[in-house]
Design a protein around this nucleic acid. Structure first.
Length: 1006
RNA sequence: GCCGAAGUGGCGGAAUGGCAGACGCGCGGGUUUCAAAAACCCGUGGGCUUAACGCCCGUGAGGGUUCAAGUCCCUCCUUCGGCACCA
């Protein structure tokens, strides 16, 4: 350790402070926008982005600098290679953690947020990253959230035209586009769209509206109905939907914020499903494009897959089952039997839209329709109450109530043990006219498909379990091959033929593909063919249609907390929801002394947003009619600000627009990148490199893509996708130690000996494990400590040297010394430790061939490795350079200077200092823009190389040959070798493989 | 349960199908020193050996392709990550 540092040795703390002040003072890393004085349009651009931090009270942990260092290396490398580099930083400062921290400590979140930002910014600056600080944003700044609110209003004023086929500026054909609400109104006014029974604006039927179609023209709607149609189509709209209600947090949460166990991601509180009227963003409209456009981006396959799974597109059919008897009569006066409905529909040119007299289900397996033996409604399904017969009503109501009171946790806990009750109602299977019972069970989810299913116990595991539990019939309609059923039950030792018999007998469930049996006219058809045919036949009869479903659900966009963006919306009794006029933005978050949300243990407690308590703020006038009105009192969720921050960095001070279009086109446009960064993705444009943790795989990254596409469709930005290239850094974990009772022990309590870790006080040997860093495991490493002990350059270098960027790896403080020593050695190459002056070994003379060879090998390795993000091996190459140069007493300047440049992206402070010293009095400034050293292959080559010689694949000797020898010459040299001759003896040389520069393999035989 | 990624010395890790273990840590030996630290130099996968020359075994396990496999293919095991009643 350098606590004994004299003025002459590498005084990293002073050097780092000096250069950080220099960079700040000279705005060394300021990136100029097109149009600014000094902007060079001939340089290619590179937009290098970090996932901006959440400014928590704990400050940075060592995981943050890992990604930040990687992007900093790329940024600095790119500047030295002649790029205009945009490398900004900011803070994601709204959200629940700040709210909770503030509640716990009794301090206003505005204050804690400012304090936390100040601390985290100090830490980031202490690490010497080359951010353009003039572009700093915080999502809590009114100048920032003004535009978050503005974008929300654009979504409010937009709808998704799923039918529209259009061509983007690159000539790509796209189906579906967000358009202005005014266009929708116009289409309806002109009669191109009509309104169906569910208030959807659908393309007008060719033959016009028939009386039985349930369709209406725009002119036939009253004011309230018209508003309902429009609201039904807005990309941002309020809707009564089942939401995740967390009474303990006093707010609702998005699906993405609820854990597998049905608890809140934050705080681990129970979450309940409740229907509530909330703001929703219709991300599901973009399901297909969010899925399809993943091919445009250069992202880790694992992340793309997670997004694909999250979107969860499936194809199948919607099928309408007619309700019969009492149930049917309860909901319809006009149609009582299946045959009657079928007859009516047969006369129609246009399929009838959903209405109460049918039970509409979604299935991916329409080929199993003949095996449907009962139906199931989700407890929240609107038909449950209507169709339950008097004798079952009490039981159904009790079950529904019980399901409501079970948290998600409880529902998930017993997926094996199915529950449910019979409603007393029956439905008619459209393919065979059979009446089957309708049940209610919570294994069917209201939020997926139509909230109702046909149950085919013979071919669905869940239905099978339910049928077994309640004694419902199981009828096989798919005959599997012996092999298919064996694959489904690999552990089972039953002979495959017998398994097939068990499936056909309804004793065993089979969910795979096969050939139809007992399926009327379809019997004998393979599954895939059957699906197509039966869907077509249902469609022809108006009883079903091809359908696509997504697991992705609309984004619940309101929260009942204080610390978020207020909605720029006013509720007027006369005009409905009214957007705040643009010139009134930002709508400032009003100050509150008591900002606590109303928390509760009661799942039935209603949400009470804190803002609702400021009556003088809530009560306002309607911008539309001028009458009395109320402000929206919910706040936006954590993710709102992070959906578009990468766009604000481009033009952070603009008060006319969230970004100037010309500026956006430059920084987000397709790059003129060198080979190393060129991918198909970057041709499509976007942020050139985005580095962050994989924990955002579906949340932030999906939401941001969604907003981006909306802004693209509305013409505000120029690219389909926000992030052309994404890279996930691996998690840095820490060694954790616990005693025999399982209690974790902090590092300061541990005596590290050769054979393990011992407790300093008890002497007990401790168990070591590698865990995610966390306070409770007492294995957190604080960057402040590392920097004060070893310096920022050492921390940066160590984090990059630990291993591949994408790998998860454990922090080992002992290893930090290794790179720290390297920096000391690099320092002494140039500075005499005795005098503090330039070392006398540094000469102006012509470099010798060997020094040049070492240098150019290093240039080659560092350049190549940096470009492929192999930062660990790039550092290894620089260490080798220093190890080679250290013993020399003549070290030519011409060799040292390029080395210092190569060190600069990795350890910028020491590099600046060494550069200044080696350049001497003539140098003033930063080396940040000095051209990167050029690799000269002719200087890197040696005249002679050693090549391994294998006999039958085993290395037996080496031969020295000229480095440019060809395969023939290499073969001759190997065969001429005495030792090789000895090995050959009287054996026969069957084959010789000679790979110049690599090896020779001599294959011998008898 | 489903999907994905990964298994290499005492440790972190390196290796376009071409000399496995670069580089660092740790460890052993040496130089320097009154001594220690620091620094510098040498050694360091395991085993055998006449200890020089040299040989054998080694990248989670087993099989395969190839002149040549850590790398490609098949089967299995383990660990980590994601999803999880999505009809």
């Amino acid at each position: 350790m350098s606590t004994t540092a004299t003025a002459a040795t590498y005084d990293f703390l002073a050097i780092e402070k000096k250069w950080q002040e220099y960079w700040a003072k000279h705005e060394t890393f300021r990136a100029l926008n097109p149009g600014e004085a000094g902007f060079d349009p001939d340089k290619p651009k590179l937009y290098v982005l970090d996932m901006f931090p959440y400014p928590s009270g704990a400050g940075l942990h060592v995981g943050h600098p890992e990604g930040y260092t990687a992007t900093d290396i790329v940024s600095r490398y790119a500047r030295m290679n002649g790029y205009n580099v945009l490398h900004p930083m900011g803070y994601d400062s709204f959200g629940l953690p700040a709210q909770q921290y503030a509640v716990e400590h009794g301090i206003h979140p505005r204050i804690t947020t400012e304090r936390n930002i100040a601390n985290i910014e100090r830490q980031i600056k202490m690490l010497g990253f080359s951010y353009d600080w003039s572009r700093r944003v915080a999502t809590t700044d009114p100048d920032y959230y003004r535009w978050t609110q503005w974008i929300f209003l654009q979504m409010y004023d937009a709808w998704y035209d799923a039918e529209m086929v259009w061509t983007d500026p690159t000539g790509r054909k796209i189906q579906g586009r967000a358009r202005r609400v005014a266009d929708l109104v116009q289409e309806m006014e002109q009669g191109r769209r009509v309104v169906d029974a569910a208030f959807n604006a659908v393309p007008a039927p060719k033959g016009g509206i028939t009386p039985t179609s349930g369709l209406r023209a725009w002119g036939d709607l009253d004011e309230i109905e018209r508003r309902r149609v429009i609201d039904n189509h807005r990309l941002a709209a309020m809707a009564e939907v089942p939401v995740n209600w967390c009474p303990a947090l006093g707010t609702v949460l998005a699906n993405e914020e609820v854990t597998n166990e049905g608890r809140s991601e934050r705080g681990n509180h129970p979450v309940y499903r409740r229907p509530m009227r909330q703001w929703m963003l219709r991300i599901t409209r973009y399901g297909d494009r969010l899925l399809d456009d993943l091919v445009m981006v250069d992202w880790p396959e694992s992340i793309k897959l997670m997004q694909r799974n999250w979107i969860g597109r499936s194809e199948g059919a919607e099928v309408d089952f007619l309700l019969t008897g009492e149930a049917g009569r309860a909901v319809t006066d006009d149609y009582e039997t299946f045959e009657a409905l079928k007859a009516v529909r047969a006369t129609q040119g246009y399929p009838v839209t959903p209405a109460d007299y049918v039970l509409r289900i979604y299935t991916t397996r329409p080929d199993t329709l003949y095996g449907a033996t009962y139906m199931v409604l989700a407890p929240e399904h609107p038909l449950v109450e209507k169709i339950s017969t008097p004798e079952h009503r009490a039981e159904v109501a009790a079950y529904v109530q019980q399901a409501r009171n079970r948290s998600e946790l409880e529902r998930i806990a017993d997926t094996k043990q199915k529950t449910g009750v019979f409603t007393g109602a029956y439905a008619i299977n459209p393919v065979n006219g059979r009446e089957i019972p309708i049940w209610v069970a919570d294994y069917v989810l209201m939020s997926y498909g139509t909230g109702a299913i046909m149950a085919v116990p013979a071919h669905d595991e869940r239905d099978f379990a339910f049928a077994k539990a309640f004694g419902l019939p199981i009828e096989a309609v798919v005959q599997p091959t012996a092999q298919a059923v064996k694959e489904e039950y690999p552990e089972d030792s039953t002979p495959p033929d017998q398994m097939v018999q068990q499936v056909l007998a309804g004793e065993r469930c089979f969910a795979g593909l096969g050939v139809a049996v007992n399926s009327g006219e379809f019997t004998g058809q393979p599954t895939s063919e059957f699906k197509k045919n039966v869907t077509a036949s249902l469609e022809a009869a108006g009883l079903g249609r091809f359908a696509v479903n997504f697991k992705l659900r609309d984004w619940l966009f309101s929260r009942q907390w204080y610390w978020g963006e207020p909605f720029p919306i006013i509720h007027c009794e006369k005009c409905g929801t009214v957007p705040l006029p643009e010139d009134q933005l930002p709508l400032l978050l009003p100050h509150m002394e008591d900002f606590k949300p109303k928390a509760s243990d009661d799942p039935e407690a209603p949400p009470q947003p804190p803002l609702a308590r400021i009556t003088e703020w809530v009560n306002t006038t309607c911008p539309s009619c001028g009458g009395a009105a109320q402000r929206e009192v919910n706040a936006m969720p954590q993710w709102a600000g992070s959906c578009w921050y990468y766009l604000r960095y481009l033009d952070p001070k603009n008060d006319k627009a969230f970004v100037d279009p010309a500026v956006e086109r430059y920084w987000m446009g397709a790059s003129r990148l060198p080979a190393w960064a060129k991918t198909e993705a970057q041709q499509a444009g976007g942020v050139d490199l985005y580095i962050g943790g994989a924990e955002h795989a579906v949340l932030h990254l999906l939401y941001a893509r969604f907003w981006h596409k909306v802004l693209f469709d509305l013409g505000y930005i120029s690219t389909h996708e926000p992030f052309a290239k994404l890279f996930n850094q691996g998690m840095i974990r820490g060694f954790a130690y616990r005693d025999s009772r399982g209690i974790y022990v902090g590092y300061d309590q541990i005596d590290f000996r050769e054979d393990g870790a011992y407790h300093k006080e008890t002497g007990e040997k401790l168990t070591e494990s590698i865990e995610k860093m966390s306070k409770s495991l007492k294995n957190v490493v604080n960057p402040d400590d590392v920097v004060s002990q070893y310096g920022a350059d050492t921390l940066r270098l160590y984090e990059m040297y630990m291993g591949p960027l994408e790998a998860s790896k454990p922090w080992n403080t002992r290893d930090v010394m290794g790179v720290h020593r390297f920096l000391h050695r690099a320092w002494r190459l140039i500075v005499d430790p005795e005098t503090g002056e330039l070392s006398s070994a540094v000469t102006d003379g012509e470099p010798d061939a060997e020094s040049l060879r070492v240098l150019h090998n290093t240039i080659e390795a560092v350049s190549r490795d940096t470009e492929r993000f192999g930062f660990n091996t790039a550092i290894a190459a620089m260490i080798m350079f220093v190890n080679e140069m250290t013993p020399r007493d003549v070290r030519p300047r011409a060799v040292l200077e390029p080395f210092v440049q190569m060190l600069a992206p990795y350890a910028p402070h020491i590099a600046e200092e060494l550069w200044q010293r080696i350049k001497g009095g003539s140098w003033h400034g930063s080396l940040s823009y000095e051209p990167w050293p050029v690799y000269d292959e002719s200087l890197a080559k040696e005249d002679e190389v050693e090549v391994a010689v294998q006999i039958n694949g085993k290395v037996r000797t080496r031969v020295r040959v000229p480095s440019d020898v060809d395969a023939k010459g290499l073969e001759a040299a190997a065969l001429a070798d005495e030792k090789v001759k000895g090995f050959i003896g009287d054996m026969q040389v069957r084959k010789v493989i000679a790979v110049p520069g690599r090896l020779v393999n001599i294959v011998l035989g008898k």
